[in-house]
Simulated scan of single mutants.
Amino acid sequence: MRILHILNHTRRLNGHVHAAVDLACAQVRLGHEVYVASEGGDFDSLLKANGIGTFVVNHRRRIPSLVKALIRLNAHVRDLEFDIVHAHMMTSAVISYPICKVRGVPLITTVHNEFERSATLMGLGTRVIAVSDVVGASMKRRGVSASKLKVVLNGTIGSSRSEGRSEEPKPLRSPSILFVGGLHPRKGLPDLFHAFEAIHGAFPAAHLYVVGDGPYRETYKEMVATLECAEAVTFIGSVSDPYPYMVAADVFVLPSHADPAPLVLSEAREARCAVIGSAVDGIPQLLEHGEAGLLVPPRDPAALAGMLRHLLESPERIASWKQKSQLRIDRLTIERVAKETIEVYRSAMPHPKAVALAT
């Protein structure tokens, strides 16, 4: 099958980029011919190393840029005769839709950021992939028919991004609490800061590490500076691979207010962390609804503090939840994601061609 993935860029900044890159590389390993159209970025060399063709399509939301993108993308779809076009963001879906309609190519869209109003436009796809059950239910409420909507839960284990990564744990102070993600309000970091402040007096040896960057970094550093626990909080900043921090951490915390299906939970579980996540969006599903990780209400620092206290008061309890993180972890492999996605593609194709490709 000849597949074209379209996304805004291939920089490390966004989870949807990681998901799309992982999927494209995994599809090559399954024997498909894969291309990526984007503005380019950090992962282009990885894509090329995995035999994936890349070309530039500018996604800037200006009429002249979009017209040029439409013309360029149409030429690629015409010349390479793709079987499937897979759009990963709203702009990609909008510019792909008329081309796919005219050329009779199925358009697949993946809803990565369901919390955005523009996610409704992902319903333009012949098939719409939701990255968790909660996202699927939300898209149904937005009017996407059940017949075109498919859920493919995110997973990262075994991805090409992880090849050759360091397994050496970072030297963290123990007991260590780790956050990995973008530094912006949706991730709920102030809740974690206040929860850590509440338990710091009882566990003065505990240390909180924040890995990631974003527009609120300085705001959050100023916030932490006013707390008594400030000396026990370290902002690591952006790193190319957070896995060595996860391997070293005692407890991984994701206090999000909204998170459709965060890849970081798959990675934290692979690293055998004891995990605490907020019970919102796709987080419960990625934590086996509380069997593979602990769940707390979102926007509730007191509840989060109580759960941190529950773990830190017993090293044996932390060890137990590290073991529980491995429950049904095989569901979080990128191979499973790739195979399920190929089945979605086949369901969208004209019947005779789909049968031919399946044989």
Rank of each mutant, 00 (worst) to 15 (best):
L153M: 11
I129L: 02
Y216D: 15
V131G: 04
A119P: 09
H200W: 13
L189A: 01
H194D: 15
G125H: 01
E163D: 11
P169L: 00
V210M: 09
P215R: 14
E114N: 12
S174A: 13
V152L: 02
I177N: 07
N113P: 03
L124D: 08
T126N: 08
L183P: 08
G164P: 08
V144W: 04
E167S: 14
E167F: 09
E116S: 07
L153P: 00
E197M: 01
E116I: 06
R165N: 01
S166P: 08
S176R: 04
G201R: 15
G136F: 04
L208V: 05
A195D: 03
G212N: 11
T126I: 01
R186F: 02
A137S: 12
G182W: 02
G158L: 06
S159N: 05
Y216A: 15
F115D: 13
G182E: 10
V211M: 11
A198W: 02
L192H: 07
H184Q: 13
T120I: 15
G155W: 10
D191S: 15
G158V: 07
G182C: 07
H184K: 13
S160G: 08
R142A: 01
S174Q: 15
V134P: 00
L189M: 06
N154T: 14
K140A: 09
S166Q: 06
K170H: 08
S166A: 07
V131F: 03
Y216M: 11
Y209F: 14
V144F: 03
G201S: 14
F115W: 15
P169R: 00
V210G: 05
A130K: 01
G201H: 13
H194C: 03
K187S: 09
I199W: 04
R142K: 14
K140P: 00
L189H: 05
K187H: 11
H207D: 00
V144S: 05
I129F: 05
A205D: 15
T120P: 00
A146W: 02
P185Y: 11
S160V: 06
H200C: 01
S145E: 10
V211H: 12
G214P: 13
